[in-house]
């Protein structure tokens, strides 16, 4: 199965971050917020922007950032 990105998750589904693409020039910011290899992400509200939970914090993410977060195939 091909690598999935964040918008592929439905509300309440979990995913594991495999890597973050540096397409928006903010890969380091995303990493500092907790989007690191192996981090567990839960989709709280899909959409534009979406709300995800990771490591106890909630983060709102716009489209460009959602696409650049790759998840490991389950």
């Amino acid at each position: 199965m091909a690598e999935q990105t964040l918008p592929g998750l439905k509300a309440g589904e979990f995913g594991t971050v495999s890597s973050v693409l540096d397409s928006q020039g903010s890969a380091k910011r995303l990493a500092d917020l907790g989007f690191v290899h192996g981090a567990c992400v839960m989709m709280v509200r899909p959409g534009e922007p979406c709300v995800v939970r990771l490591g106890g914090r909630c983060v709102g993410l716009g489209g460009g950032h959602q696409q650049s977060i790759l998840l490991s195939p389950e």
């Binding site: 909630c58 983060v59 716009g62």
Partner: peptide, 10 residues
């Protein structure tokens, strides 16, 4: 515009 990125505090 840059994509949205913000922490939502509890």
């Amino acid at each position: 515009p840059a994509p949205f990125l913000m922490e939502l505090p509890g």
